Amino acid sequence: MPLSRNVGDFDHLIRTTKAGPFYITLLPRCSYEVSYRPNQSAVGFAFESQSGVHAFASDRVTPFRTKPNSLAFVPRECEVFSSSKNGGEYLLVVDEANSQIENQVLRHFNNVIDPAAIAAAQRIRSALLGSAREALWVEENAGVLFERIRKELNASSKEAREARWMTPARLKLIDEFIDSRISQELRVAEIAVALGLSEGFFIRAFKAATGKSPHSYLIDRRLAHARVLLRTSAHDLCDVALTVGFSSHAHMTAAFTHRLGVTPGRLRAAMGCRSDSIATRRK
Rank of each mutant, 00 (worst) to 15 (best):
W137C: 06
V138D: 01
V138G: 00
E139S: 04
E139F: 07
E140M: 07
N141T: 04
A142L: 11
V144S: 08
V144G: 08
L145V: 06
L145R: 00
E147I: 06
E147A: 05
R148T: 01
R148I: 04
L153G: 02
S156E: 04
S156A: 07
S157F: 05
S157V: 01
K158N: 02
E159S: 00
A160L: 01
A163K: 04
T167K: 06
T167V: 07
T167H: 01
P168Y: 04
P168F: 07
A169L: 03
A169D: 01
A169W: 00
R170H: 02
K172Q: 01
L173E: 06
L173T: 09
L173N: 00
I174V: 06
D175N: 14
D175I: 12
E176T: 15
F177V: 07
F177N: 00
F177S: 06
R181S: 12
I182N: 09
S183V: 13
S183T: 10
S183A: 14
E185S: 14
L186W: 10
R187D: 13
R187G: 15
R187T: 15
V188A: 15
E190D: 12
A192L: 12
V193E: 12
A194I: 06
L195D: 01
G196L: 04
L197V: 07
L197G: 05
S198H: 02
E199H: 13
G200A: 11
G200I: 11
F201N: 10
A205F: 10
A205C: 09
F206C: 11
K207M: 07
K207C: 08
A209P: 13
T210L: 10
G211R: 09
K212I: 12
S213G: 04
S213N: 05
P214T: 08
P214Q: 06
P214L: 06
P214A: 01
H215V: 12
H215T: 11
Y217N: 07
Y217R: 10
Y217V: 13
D220P: 11
L223G: 06
A224W: 11
A224P: 15
A224N: 12
A226V: 13
A226P: 09
R227Y: 05
L229T: 05
T232C: 12
S233K: 02
S233Y: 00
A234K: 05
H235E: 13
D236G: 09
L237Q: 10
C238N: 10
C238A: 14
T243R: 06
G245I: 11
G245H: 03
S248Q: 15
S248D: 13
